[in-house]
């Protein structure tokens, strides 16, 4: 049975964001709560999360955040590690089903009511979509749950080993293509599996990934990837990666300049 989380609707979320976006972390720590008068629960589809569960979730996320330097700024790499660890924690612990995790206002509740201090620490002075329930792809917590859900390997001992394969920007590329290929977990996992072995030369990771995804989307218009065995799926993904890398390497051998430098690593 899915666990239902409170949903913080648009107006209340926007109001909190306008109060919080320039507030110091210490004030946001004081502002956190386990409930909000304007937050509502869905009437059906599971059981309501308890106050104790919310409190425990907050404490566990605070522990991970402290390791990453919270409440101080910390290093960029620490925040990457924080993301990977919290993605697993949210996915393992929240008891959410995918349909409930698609409901954006529940993520606004986590960001603005339960964890405002950590949310605004992770993305200081964020644009609204990092904390409001407007775009899960960009949401400080929602994007992490979805990253774990798409990349988790249910049958394996190291269930979340693929989480570290992609940074946020790269994962966004797949998540944004959910309707075509990003909704297919076997395909997303096959790309993640193949990725570390790719010889991309001087081709920026993001550029290569976008090309691979376009290639797979084109094939996907006439191919049912879900019908394939794991080996064959891996072979086709490898083929797409190899073709893209070969085409782009040829381009980047002739055309490497400073304008590409900023695109070389992914956040």
């Amino acid at each position: 049975m899915s666990v239902l989380y409170p949903r913080l609707l648009g107006d209340a979320a926007r109001e909190l964001h306008s109060q919080y976006q320039h507030a110091p972390i210490a004030k946001l720590q004081e502002g956190h709560a386990l409930r909000h008068p304007s937050a509502v629960f869905a009437a059906t589809g599971g059981r309501r999360v308890t106050a104790e569960e919310l409190q425990r979730l907050r404490e566990d996320i605070l522990t991970v955040a402290a390791r990453a330097g919270f409440p101080n700024e910390g290093r960029r790499q620490d925040r990457m590690d924080f993301d990977v660890e919290v993605a697993q924690l949210l996915h393992r612990r929240c008891g959410l089903v995918a349909a409930e995790a698609s409901v954006r206002p529940m993520w606004a509740f986590l960001a603005l009511v339960l964890l405002p201090d950590v949310s605004y620490w992770r993305f200081p002075r964020p644009p609204g979509d990092r904390v409001l329930g407007t775009d899960i792809t960009r949401h400080v917590w929602g994007r992490l749950w979805w990253r774990a859900h798409l990349l988790a390997l249910p049958q394996e001992h190291e269930r979340y080993r693929l989480l570290e394969t992609f940074g946020e920007a790269a994962f966004d590329q797949m998540y944004a293509r959910r309707r075509s290929i990003g909704g297919s977990r076997i395909l997303v996992r096959a790309v993640a599996d193949a990725w570390p072995t790719v010889d991309r030369g001087r081709v920026p990771e993001r550029t290569l990934l976008i090309d691979v995804l376009k290639r797979l989307s084109r094939w996907g218009a006439v191919v049912d990837f879900e019908s394939l065995d794991d080996d064959e799926l891996r072979r086709q993904v490898q083929e797409a990666v190899t073709e893209s890398a070969a085409v782009l390497r040829a381009v980047y051998v002739q055309d490497v300049g400073p304008r590409h430098a900023s695109d070389r690593t992914l956040g």
Partner: peptide, 20 residues
């Protein structure tokens, strides 16, 4: 040649194989 059934959920946009 296979006969395959794939499921697709419109709210989560997830898909998967149901039968083959």
């Amino acid at each position: 040649v296979d006969l395959t059934v794939q499921w697709f959920a419109t709210n989560s946009l997830l898909r998967g194989r149901a039968w083959r």
